[in-house]
Design a protein around this nucleic acid. Structure first.
Lengths: 146, 146
DNA sequence: TATAATTAAGTTGTGTGCAATTTAATTGTG
DNA sequence: CACAATTAAATTGCACACAACTTAATTATA
């Protein structure tokens, strides 16, 4: 009895933790994206880079890193792989030789069309409603913006 | 004007996506845990293993994998690192030689005390309320349980 | 009871993610 | 102008995460 009570009120009980479901949820989202993104030859982080570039086709490594919260240690090899797949070009700025400009190729721009259906497909695959997503996004962005 | 409207209604606009904040949030949680877990010589996934083992001190690799949604490709090297730090033992079952039993060492059990304050510290570090966490957990577990 | 099927871990290979450091270029200051 | 400080990427090293495969052991079945 006392054992059960201890277990039920234990802060370290994994079922009580919020961080664990968030961790599982983030992994599950990436796993649900995988089959759709494989058709585009993209991983999830690479897809995020494409999302940012589809909004503005040329950006520095730094700008991408700020928007995606990734450092050059992650981005440099990731961008090299994307360059190898011919979705982007990596061209060092002539004005400031420290800066590398990342630009969408024609192939990269064309990929946007094939990607438009993905958010819809993912919602269906995960069986979530717009309302649930709205509440989630609302709480999470509120916390992250602090 | 039409460009602005296009941008505002574009499903691929990263600011419209829910998956991106979830991805950022999960990373942020791990980053907030890092300094507290470093004091215990644990990474976040290793901490999750400890949470599960603190509830039941002996479990197979399979059982851990099911609870944490990790496969042996992730768990085997992770558990070897935890064994090396003497938090657990890895002993192959004599009844079924395929099975490896993971058991907390004394050092591993003692670590629980030092960990009790972590959930509280994390809530303060991330500046979140119990209510926000409850709503988050409620929605996420509902989606994951489908 | 042989042998096929299944199961549990482990291995290999690829791709993040981040800390710490390095390299090269630019900017700031005496 | 010289030199220190700063900045942008790249590099190195370590730890996941997962797909695909292998190995060894157990179970099921003809």
């Amino acid at each position: 009895m006392s054992l059960q009570i201890e277990s039920m009120t234990n802060q370290l009980n994994i079922s009580e933790q919020v961080c664990f479901p968030v961790y599982l949820f983030a992994k599950e989202i990436i796993n649900q994206y995988r089959p759709f993104l494989e058709e585009l030859e993209l991983t999830y982080p690479q897809y995020l880079v494409m999302l940012v570039l589809w909004e503005q086709e040329t950006q520095t490594v730094n700008q991408l890193g700020e928007k995606l919260k990734l450092d050059s240690g992650t981005l440099t090899p990731l961008l090299k792989r994307m360059e190898h797949k011919a979705f982007i070009t990596r061209i060092r700025s002539t004005v400031d030789q420290r800066i590398v400009n990342i630009t969408l190729t024609k192939k990269g721009k064309l990929l946007k069309e094939k990607a438009t259906c993905i958010p819809e497909k993912l919602m269906q695959a995960m069986n979530v409603t717009v309302e649930e997503l709205a509440v989630l996004k609302n709480i999470i962005t509120k916390i992250l913006d602090r």
